[in-house]
Design a binder for these strands. Structure first.
Lengths: 216, 216
DNA sequence: CTCTCATTGTGGACAATTGCACAATAAGGG
DNA sequence: CCCTTATTGTGCAATTGTCCACAATGAGAG
C-alpha cells in the first residue's frame, strides 16, 4: 500500500533533511551581513562563494521550501532573509535560560548578539550559594531550584548549559523535566535526553581536535 | 588511466572522509570519561549507546585506521584512546594563541579543560590599549602587533578568534600571515582563508537557530 | 578439548547527499 | 519587438555515507 488518504495528506509535510536545516542559519547570517552592507540582491553563486558552498547546493536547499528567487536576477536579500526566518521560526523571539554562572555562563549572559538573531536571555541560574543573588550586568543570578517553576510558568523551551561536565547530565535532566525542548550545551560531555528534546554541543577541544589531524 | 605506479603507492595514504575525522574526538572524549570512571574495556555497542551512534558506524570508522579491538572482548579503553590520540595528533601538546580579550577570550584563557585534551594556551592578544598589559589570571594581555613575530618564532599553528565580527576577517588574515594553519573562530561571520588553512566556527545563535525549526 | 557466547572487521546493499547540466525565463539594450 | 545575458529550479547521475548481516575468532565454562 503506497497510497495516502486525503486525510493523511493534510498533515504530510515533506521531511527536510537535518543537514539542510543546519545550513539555513548560515545562509541567514550571510544575508543579514549583506543587508548591513547595504546590498539589495544576491545570487546563489555569490552567496556560495562567500560561504564556500556550491551554488547548486544553495539553490537545491532553498527549493525544498519554495521558490524565492527570480531567473536572471537572483534573490532579493531582505525577502529571502525573512523567508528563512519564518522557516526557522526565528521571526519571533525565543526566551532562553542559562544554567551555570561561571565564566562561560556569564560571557553568554553578557553577549549582545542574541537579540538580533531571535533570542532573548530570560535569566541565568546557578546552584552555588556564593553566586545566587549576585548581580551580573542586567541579571541577578537565580537559584537553580526555582528554574522549573519559572520555565513552566513562562513556557520557556530553550536553554544553554554552562556548568562543569560532572553536573551537566543532572542539569539536563532538570531542564527536560522543566519542559525545555532544545539545549545548547557547553559542557564537554555527551548528554542523554529523551526523544523530542534536541541537543547541540559546543566543546572547543573537540573543534580543535578535529583540525589537528590535518596539521603536521 | 586508473593505475598508480609503485612510486605513488608509497605516499598514498587512504583518503579519510572529514566526517569520520569529526567523530573521532567525540569517541576520544567518551573513552576518557570511561577511563575516569575506572572502566577498562568497552564495546562498539556500549560506546554507540552512550553517544547515540550505531555500533556498526563506530566499527567502520575505526577500521579506517587499523584493527584496535578483540573479537568477543571489545576494545581496551586506554589502548584505543591512545591510538585515537595518535591518529588525531593530540598525543603531543599544541600551542594555541587567543586573539581578543573580551568576555569570550578571557573565558577561553581561563578554561582549564584544554591541557588534558592536548592544547596549551600560549598567550592572549588584543589591540585595545586599554587591555594591553592587563593581567588576567596567569596571562598578561599582549599587543596583537607582536603576534606574528611570536607565532613564527614559536612555530605556533593554531589560534582561536574571539573578536567582534567586524574585526574577525582582518584578524584571520593576520593569523594566516603569521603561519597559523587552524583557526577556531567565535566570531559570528564567515571567514575566508586560503586553501590549507582550516577553520571551525562556533556561533551560539547558529546552533540555537538550528534547533528552533523543530520546536512549535 | 569442546561448546557457547560475545564481539570484531568488512563486503555489499541501501540510503542520503551532492553536483551537473539544461530548459525556462526575467530584464535590459537597441 | 527581438536578442543577449544572467540566473533560477530541477531531473538525473554520480558520489558519499550508513547500516545490515555474517564469517572469523577470542575467552571462558565445564
Amino acid at each position: 500500500m503506497l497510497q495516502f488518504s486525503a486525510g493523511d495528506m493534510i498533515t504530510m509535510a515533506k521531511q527536510i533533511p537535518d543537514i539542510v536545516i543546519g545550513r539555513l542559519p548560515v545562509y541567514l547570517r550571510a544575508l543579514q551581513q549583506m543587508l548591513a552592507e547595504g546590498r539589495q540582491v544576491t545570487s546563489s553563486q555569490e552567496l556560495g562563494e562567500r560561504l564556500g558552498i556550491s551554488a547548486a547546493q544553495i539553490r537545491k536547499d532553498l527549493s525544498q521550501f519554495g521558490e524565492f528567487g527570480k531567473q536572471g536576477t537572483g534573490y532579493n536579500i531582505e525577502y529571502l532573509a525573512n523567508q528563512l526566518r519564518e522557516i526557522l521560526k526565528v521571526n519571533k523571539t525565543w526566551e532562553v535560560v542559562i544554567v551555570g554562572a561561571g565564566d562561560i555562563g556569564r560571557a553568554l549572559a553578557g553577549y549582545s548578539g542574541f537579540s538580533e538573531r531571535g533570542f532573548n536571555i530570560r535569566g541565568i541560574f546557578d546552584n552555588s550559594p556564593k553566586r545566587i543573588g549576585e548581580q551580573h550586568g542586567e541579571f541577578v543570578i537565580k537559584d537553580t531550584a526555582t528554574l522549573k517553576a519559572e520555565a513552566q510558568a513562562e513556557g520557556i523551551k530553550m536553554a544553554m548549559i554552562a556548568v562543569p561536565a560532572s553536573a551537566a547530565q543532572e542539569v539536563a535532566d532538570l531542564l527536560v523535566d522543566a519542559g525545555i525542548r532544545a539545549i545548547l550545551s557547553y559542557a564537554p560531555v555527551n548528554l542523554n535526553v529523551p526523544a523530542g528534546v534536541r541537543v547541540q554541543n559546543i566543546d572547543p577541544s573537540i573543534h580543535l581536535q578535529r583540525m589537528t589531524y590535518y596539521l603536521d
